[in-house]
């Protein structure tokens, strides 16, 4: 395998990883703070794609405006799910919220099927066919845009968690919920903030990816299964784990598709997850907090 090929796969792998990282980051935040496996985030990815598609196609909105529109809508929807569905169910335990999450995913998927039809769609990228070529390695302008925006979003969330007061409160809530209540952190309100943030990230991922990869109302289920595998793989509730996990799975999928067969690509993420869990049940970067 020559250097050009390796670099090309790295670029393609990074691009796929970007979507996984955004969705997995939201999932791990919600799981860390609320202990809910929010599969409905998959539907928000799908809706993010449709918002951007119709905003650009039907309303003539600029693609660059349609991405924040998608984020706003999916963030709001995630917050509504949190307040109206998950919060009332949470005291009855994890299994119930999980079933509810699957329910929301299926409902939104079928509403989308009914409203938008089952055809595959592709958002028209404002970058068209533009591409950067370094040697023989090709990076489309849209891929570059997605990588930059993803890096900004991930970096922004990381900085926010590390340095802002609500960010520290979210971490406190994930690490030691009882002490968080004792210092006066409002867990209900911050939980909704985690939903809003995760929803916006999922919506962004949908709007960003879907100018390169065609989508239909079922895209959410595929994305969420893999993202959830990544969260387990990286360590439930671990932010660096979600990002590292996304990179590993994205790269592994790209290499599998190239050297084995494209049909095996989807398998590889789950196989990796199972292998890791045998060796480290707490996940790659997960910690067991006493």
């Amino acid at each position: 395998m020559d250097l050009t090929t390796i670099l090309q796969f790295t670029v393609n792998g990074l691009f796929i990883s970007a979507a996984y990282a955004l969705v997995a980051l939201g999932l791990t935040l919600i799981f860390g703070v609320l202990h809910i496996a929010d599969f409905a985030q998959g539907a928000l990815y799908m809706l993010g794609a449709y918002v951007s598609f119709y905003a650009t196609q039907a309303l003539g909105v600029s693609y660059f405006v349609s991405v924040p529109m998608a984020m706003g809508l999916t963030g709001a929807l995630a917050t509504l799910n949190g307040a109206l569905v998950y919060r009332p169910l949470q005291r009855h335990g994890g299994a119930l919220t999980f079933v509810a999450a699957l329910g929301i995913l299926l409902i939104l998927q079928n509403v989308a099927l009914w409203l938008f039809g089952g055809d595959f769609r592709l958002i028209a990228s404002p970058f068209g066919e533009g591409r950067i070529t370094v040697g023989e390695v090709v990076l489309t302008h849209h891929q570059a845009f997605v990588l930059v925006v993803t890096a900004l979003l991930l970096g922004g969330v990381w900085m926010g968690l590390r340095y802002t007061k609500p960010g520290k409160a979210l971490r406190a809530l994930a690490q030691q919920p009882e002490a968080a209540r004792l210092v006066g952190i409002d867990s209900a309100r911050l939980g909704l903030a985690a939903f809003a943030l995760a929803g916006a990230l999922a919506g962004a991922a949908g709007a960003l990816m879907s100018a390169m990869r065609a989508f239909d109302p079922h895209i959410g289920a595929v994305v969420i299964l893999k993202s959830f595998a990544i969260v387990i793989f990286g360590g439930m509730g671990s932010v660096p784990g979600a990002i590292v996990g996304a990179l590993v799975v994205g790269m592994a999928e790209t290499l599998t598709a190239a050297y084995l067969a494209a049909e095996f690509a989807d398998l590889v993420g789950f196989a990796l997850m199972i292998v890791i869990l045998f060796a480290r049940p707490q996940g790659l970067l997960g910690r067991v907090w006493a």
């Binding site: 520290k168 406190a172 009882e178 210092v183 006066g184 907090w289």
Partner: peptide, 23 residues
């Protein structure tokens, strides 16, 4: 100050103290 200390283990001493003044 609860039984078993219940600190935020993955945060620094300073961050733990700052969170004490959260309200």
């Amino acid at each position: 100050c609860p039984e078993g200390r219940k600190l935020f283990p993955e945060m620094t001493v300073l961050e733990n103290l700052e969170l004490g003044a959260y309200v």
